[in-house]
Nucleic acid binder design. Sequence first.
DNA 1: AGTGCGGCTTGACTTTTATCAAGCGTCGGC
DNA 2: GCCGACGCTTGATAAAAGTCAAGCCGCACT
Lengths: 258, 258
Amino acid sequence: MPLRPTDAEHIRHLSFFRASTDATFDKAIAGGFLQKFPAGTTLLMEGDTVDFLYILLEGSVELGAGWKSKDTTLAILRPVSTFILAAVVLDADALMTAVTLERSEILMVPGESLRRAMKEDAEFCFAVSEELSGCYRGLVRSIKNHKLRDSTERLANYLLTQRARQGGKIEIVLPHEKRVLASLLGMTPENLSRAFLKLQAQGVTVDGARVRLEKVTALERLARPSPLIDNHFAQPRNELGKAHTERQKGLLDGKGSA
Amino acid sequence: MPLRPTDAEHIRHLSFFRASTDATFDKAIAGGFLQKFPAGTTLLMEGDTVDFLYILLEGSVELGAGWKSKDTTLAILRPVSTFILAAVVLDADALMTAVTLERSEILMVPGESLRRAMKEDAEFCFAVSEELSGCYRGLVRSIKNHKLRDSTERLANYLLTQRARQGGKIEIVLPHEKRVLASLLGMTPENLSRAFLKLQAQGVTVDGARVRLEKVTALERLARPSPLIDNHFAQPRNELGKAHTERQKGLLDGKGSA
DNA sequence: AGTGCGGCTTGACTTTTATCAAGCGTCGGC
DNA sequence: GCCGACGCTTGATAAAAGTCAAGCCGCACT
């Protein structure tokens, strides 16, 4: 369905649109539309031509990739997040598959509209560049996480990140199925179970999706979270699940507000 | 030293400057200078404040990162490559350490000049966005390479990529020390040696830095190179259309940025 | 209530990767 | 020339991660 004025007004202040003028905004979303998808819908397969920029407004989306009968999860997005922005800017094929994990509401903006708006409005184009840069840095963090830490350390840091995101309480709730989490962390579901067992020594107890962190300092001693890898302070706002406003100057400690 | 007019004229047509007008170019490189560094110079450490965009004109640079006494190589750059572009756009701290591997010539452009030029010239800003997008996609490829393939498969694909880059001859020359290559491929030097042994069955023989690929089809059967992960066709600029085809970034040697 | 499916866990086992410890060869300095 | 450093290789061993198989539990559906 085409975009209703009330939806447009809502979107007007999200993501990089905040930096745009009204005229540029209209140009950028020209031809865009809102769509709802049920859980499990494949929005885009890797290798597909990319015609739209996607902006997740409700629900959640998994970005993944496969090779030789293996599959892995690269990121899990929550609102408000853009995705496949880089492919849109380059008018190139998708490198990732996008699948809804829940019923989701997604704004689809024609790539051509976005590119035209970028080329005509430097302010807006710069805002998109900032978004791209944030996504890029999210990926750098992800690679460091995978190349420098083993699976138990990745889990420990994931738990601490969730703790920070969920308000620092003693108990957190895993936002996804464990099999999805395992894939995101680059391990098998079996090994995720075993990694949770190992973290019992650091005061981690699991009950379904509820995880209690009884000895945070012990967990931190093992996890050694780093502002150069983890991003506890990010809004869940952009492509690869990491920071949008990269505000880490002077942040050395794992505690902070949302 | 300040930039001489002859240097500026040379740089004028490199990277995203190609898309700029003369006025924007002057603005973008205002305050920039050329500098030569010996091998092994640390240009920037992770966590440092980033004041300049770096553009590698000669030599080679390793981008790496460390955690808990471990270190890894994220990319190896060859001319002409920009690096730490994302940090410059966001005016944020570096997430990677940059070290020269050989004597190198590097153009250093004040971040503030670049950002100002981007904000004033949409065409130029879009070209920078394309560069950022290419870097982003290089990292996506890199993560897929690491999460989906084991170390022998990564080596096999690295060899095939080098073969394509070096003209498809039966013999290739490894462009870096094996210990650097091992770090780039996410393995220890010991395991790199053993991985080469395993590939003898696929016709791979090693003599120092010279590697012969006698049975390419057998090697390809094992490596299963994919255009969604590997980027064999990167370097030569496309003559027809899309001058901004993404070039090899981030992943195995090539262009990159932070 | 019963049934079946899917997600999760656990155990035994295999494969992959890292670690530790030699040993070899090359290169540059003395 | 000799020495020592360093990069690379090889072997033995240990740790990490994946695979296969079985079983449990909760949940939806009949």
